[in-house]
Simulated scan of single mutants.
Amino acid sequence: MTIAPGDAERGAHHLYLAMRDFVRSTDEALPGKFEVTKEGIVHDMMSPGGPHEVTAAHVSRRLERAMPDDLLAHNGTPDVEDESEGILRHPDVMVIAWADLDVEGSIDPRTVIAAVEVVSRSNPDNDWVAKTRDYPLIGIPVYAVFDPRTGTGAVLSDIHSTPDGPRYATRKDFVYGEDVTIADWTISTEGLPRYQPEGAAGD
C-alpha cells in the first residue's frame, strides 16, 4: 500500500491530537507529568515537593528579582505547544511576558524567552536529551537545566540549523554555588537542594 506524503502528515497530526487529548485527560488524575515529544508520550514520575519543586521555586523567584516588571518566571500552567511539530511540553519554569501569558489555551513557544527544567530522578534523559532536541525545534531561544542529582547544570542557547534540524550551538556548564546567566539575567545557584541518595526520602 502506498501512502502519499499528505496522508502521512494528516495521520501524524491525528496521532498527535490523540496523544494530546490523553495527556490533558491525565491532568491531576495521575501522578507525575505527561508530555508529548517527537517520539511519543513521555512520563516523569515526580514526588510532590522536595528538591525538584524547591529548585523550580528558587530559580523562579531569583529570576523575577532580576527581571523587569513586565516579565515573569512562571512555574504553573499552561503548556507550551507547537501543533505543527507535534510537541506539547510543560517547562518547570518559563520566562515570558505577562502579555504573552494572557492567552486562552497553550502558550506559543516562540513567545517564551527561556525555559528552565529541573532534572527528574525518574527520567533524566527527558531533560538532558529530548528537551535539548525539542526546545530549539519549537523556537525556545534559551534552555537552562538544573540537575539536583549532581549539583550541576547547563544553559543552552544560539539556535542554528543542522542536518538533524535546529539545535543549540552554545552550551555553558555550571556547578551549584556559581552564578549562572539565563538569557539576560544572572542569578545565584547557592543553596539549591540536592536529591538524597536512592532509597532515602525525597524526589
Rank of each mutant, 00 (worst) to 15 (best):
Y143F: 12
V180P: 10
G50S: 08
I140H: 02
T189N: 09
P91M: 12
T162V: 11
Q196P: 04
P148L: 02
S188L: 03
D27Y: 13
D7W: 04
D179R: 15
A66V: 04
Y176D: 02
D125I: 02
S47G: 09
I187D: 05
G86K: 00
G105S: 04
P136M: 14
G86D: 12
P51F: 10
A97R: 14
R65M: 09
A56Q: 04
E53P: 00
G76K: 12
S47T: 09
R167Q: 10
Y143E: 14
T77L: 13
G86Q: 06
G165V: 09
G49W: 03
V116K: 04
P136V: 15
E117H: 03
P51V: 09
A200R: 13
D158H: 13
A99K: 12
E53W: 02
A99I: 10
F22Q: 14
H90T: 06
V36L: 08
K131S: 09
A183R: 11
K38I: 15
L30V: 14
D127N: 02
G139K: 12
T26F: 12
A130M: 08
Y195V: 03
V59Y: 11
A99Q: 15
A115I: 01
H58L: 13
A66I: 00
T26D: 01
R121K: 13
R110G: 05
A183I: 11
V145D: 10
R194H: 08
K38T: 15
Y16R: 03
Y16E: 09
E28F: 03
T186D: 13
L72A: 07
A18P: 01
R24A: 06
P136N: 14
G32T: 05
M45S: 09
R89C: 07
S47D: 15
I107E: 07
E35R: 01
G191L: 13
S157N: 07
F146I: 09
G191S: 11
R167I: 01
V145M: 07
P68L: 00
H90C: 00
I159M: 13
E28C: 00
V116Y: 10
E85K: 15
L15Q: 12
G153P: 00
A200G: 01
D70V: 07
I107K: 10
A200E: 14
P31N: 11
G199V: 04
D44L: 12
Y16C: 06
A57L: 15
G49S: 12
A18K: 15
E39K: 14
G40L: 07
K131P: 01
R149V: 01
T55M: 07
P109I: 08
M19Y: 00
D100T: 03
F34A: 15
D147P: 00
A115K: 04
A66G: 04
G40P: 06
R121N: 03
H13F: 11
D69V: 03
D173R: 11
I107H: 06
D108K: 11
R65F: 02
E198V: 08
V119S: 01
T132R: 14
D7I: 10
P68F: 00
G153F: 08
G177Y: 00
